[in-house]
């Protein structure tokens, strides 16, 4: 009995305190970044202004002058949005076919697709630079969009496949009996039913594109460079510019973090590849 009583005491007081502690601890670095973004660069490194300081918006107002923020942000938006759209355009029909008309090779095809994701990007880095330069696509949006689409295609197909598989096969068959053709099946049944899944797949692909930091750094110089490249290029090892660096970092991750908050549940479900219910 003692154990039960103890554990209930833990549930009432210990668990919430501990849980909140862990939650705040994990959120702290982000909080700290946001807080620092409102300090001047000078205040940001002074222990006496750790918590008490006069907030300033200058770091945000000067982002364009300091970092040319909007140019990189525009590139990030263009590449992430286009790559997400293209990925979906290719992956929805593929996942639909695999989920509802599986053949004996479907499982192997899916496995193979995921295995391309395990191909180390670095192994093909130079050929990619070589190819891009030789056809004049180096540092262009087209190149970045293509590469981002390709690296996210396997994950998108897997996620969509697991969402589509949740749709009872009976409903698709009922549609067949009722006289829908393939296009009708996608339009009238699949998309309305899997809307949530498609949206969260799109969102996750978008997040991965936005955050990508290998190809976007190595295949661009300036014209198609994204926010990842901007941040990577301003690592500020001497820490003289903590304030402005925090501001531009906050501006780079803010939209995505907020977007993620709203959709976390669906995102997680998709990412488990249907193996966790």
């Amino acid at each position: 009995m003692a154990i039960v009583a103890q554990s209930s005491k833990f549930s009432t007081y210990g668990r919430p305190v501990l849980a909140w502690g862990v939650g705040l601890l994990f959120f702290f670095p982000i909080f700290w970044m946001v807080l620092t973004s409102f300090k001047t660069d000078a205040d940001a490194v002074k222990p006496e202004h750790l918590i008490f300081f006069t907030p300033t918006f200058d770091n945000y107002l000067n982002m364009t002058d300091n970092y040319d923020y909007w140019r990189f942000a525009t590139n990030s938006v263009i590449s992430a949005v286009s790559a997400t759209a293209f990925t979906l355009f290719v992956s929805v029909p593929a996942a639909y076919a695999m989920a509802f008309n599986p053949s004996r090779s479907t499982k192997d095809v899916l496995m193979w697709m995921l295995s391309t994701k395990m191909l180390p990007a670095a192994a093909v880095l130079y050929p990619m630079i070589f190819l891009a330069k030789s056809i004049g696509l180096y540092d262009t949006h087209i190149l970045i969009i293509t590469v981002l689409s390709l690296i996210n295609l396997p994950i998108a197909i897997w996620m969509l496949f697991t969402y589509f598989k949740e749709i009872p096969k009976d409903i698709i068959e009922a549609g067949k009996m009722d006289g829908v053709n393939t296009w009708g099946e996608i339009k009238e049944i699949l998309v309305p039913l899997a809307w949530g899944g498609i949206a969260s797949t799109a969102l996750l692909v978008f997040i991965f594109c936005w955050n990508e930091a290998y190809w976007t750094v190595r295949l661009t110089t300036i014209d198609a460079a994204t926010l990842s490249k901007l941040i990577e290029g301003n690592r500020a090892p001497e820490g003289l510019f903590f304030g402005r660096l925090s501001a531009v970092s906050t501006a780079a991750v803010g939209p995505i973090v907020v977007l993620g908050w709203f959709c976390q549940k669906q995102l997680v479900q998709g990412l488990t590849f249907g193996a966790v219910k």
Partner: peptide, 9 residues
């Protein structure tokens, strides 16, 4: 939240 932060940041 940390999961959505870009690796560079």
């Amino acid at each position: 939240s940390p999961f959505f932060v870009m690796p560079a940041v």
